[in-house]
Computed example of a mutant assay.
Amino acid sequence: MKFSIGGSLKLAFRPWVEGLENIPAEGPAILASNHLSFSDSFFLPAVLDRKVTFIAKAEYFTSPGVKGKLTAAFFKGVGQLPVDRSGARGAGDAAIKAGIDVIKAGGLFGIYPEGTRSPDGRLYRGKPGGLPRVALATGAPVIPVAMIDTEKIQPPGKVVPKLMRPGIRIGKPLDFSRYQGMENDRFILRSVTDEVMYEIMKLSGQEYVDIYATAAKRQIADEAKRVADEHRAAERAEKAREIEQAKRAERPGD
């Protein structure tokens, strides 16, 4: 199913790719990518000969009915791995374990260090959790990846994608074996994450923002709420003025 989906995506969107030679023909590796669109997890595997395993919410695999079964089959077909987000630390620990298992099996593990999609196309600070912990626990090389223009194909909230060519740049593998066994040192975790994000920034050409994307999304949502509140307040004030003017017009002698 992976090949049929991948072939369909390549035929429909004709993605261009640079740096395919940096993907090992065999053996484990971590693909660390920027995250612009829901479709990122589909386009990257589509251009590779090897299977890439990303993590996905377990709900995608357990929804009832025909639609739920079709969704589960699709996500399995493109290499998504269900992760249970329950428990004390939720998805974080589950993602780390899933990544380590994929690497130990000799596979390619795909991960988004930003932790969520960029809200505005810029590159945000990487989270020092899953990526560096999996890398340091396994010794697997980290390959930086830049998705290009996928946010234009399927912006957040859009179901039907726009037909245009996305791009993928794959960088040279990064070796962090010098830090192996130091996955509990928060300074090392931050250093590894920042080095990977710097390489992604060079590949993607994105503007870098030194805050987490989740914080940026909150700021954007708060600003949108503030603007909406001001707009509603202005509408109420205008309505009140119109009512007052109407009352004055009805008074004799005014």
Rank of each mutant, 00 (worst) to 15 (best):
A137Q: 15
F43Y: 11
K152S: 11
V227Q: 12
G27N: 10
E114F: 13
K67I: 11
F187I: 06
Y198H: 15
A246Q: 14
G87I: 07
F42K: 02
A237M: 09
V52M: 02
E230G: 03
A216C: 00
G6D: 08
D175I: 11
F3E: 14
Y179E: 04
D40N: 06
S63V: 00
K97P: 00
K67L: 12
K104T: 04
V83C: 05
A12I: 15
R218Y: 01
K202S: 01
Q245Y: 07
P128Y: 03
S8R: 03
R218E: 09
A32E: 02
P24Y: 14
K51G: 00
E21Q: 14
R165A: 10
S8N: 02
M201P: 00
V196G: 01
A95W: 09
A88E: 13
K172V: 05
L11D: 01
L131C: 09
V227Y: 00
S39Q: 01
E235Y: 01
V52L: 14
F42A: 14
T150P: 10
K158E: 04
D40K: 01
A216H: 07
D194T: 12
E59R: 12
T116Q: 07
R248C: 00
G106Q: 10
S33L: 12
R169Y: 06
A228N: 08
D40H: 03
D120H: 08
R85P: 05
G65S: 09
F176V: 08
Y179H: 14
Q219P: 00
F75S: 00
R186E: 06
L36D: 05
Q80N: 06
I111C: 11
A240N: 08
P156F: 07
V134I: 15
K57R: 15
S41G: 13
M1V: 13
I148C: 11
G121V: 03
A58N: 13
S39T: 10
R165C: 02
A88C: 01
P24E: 10
A221Q: 13
D229S: 10
V102H: 10
G130Y: 02
L44I: 14
T150K: 05
G110F: 04
G6E: 07
M164H: 05
D185N: 15
A237N: 11
P28S: 12
R14F: 04
G253D: 05
A91N: 05
I111D: 03
T71V: 14
F61Y: 06
A56Y: 08
L70W: 04
I23K: 07
L44Q: 05
R178H: 09
G79T: 08
L123A: 07
A233D: 13
S37L: 05
Y112W: 08
A91L: 02
F61A: 13
T193C: 03
K97I: 04
R186M: 07
Y212L: 15
V196P: 00
P113C: 09
A29Q: 12
G110D: 07
R251Q: 15
E183A: 06
D222S: 13
G77V: 09
P173A: 11
K158D: 00
A234E: 11
A94V: 04
Y112L: 08
V17T: 15
L81R: 13
I23A: 08
A95C: 15
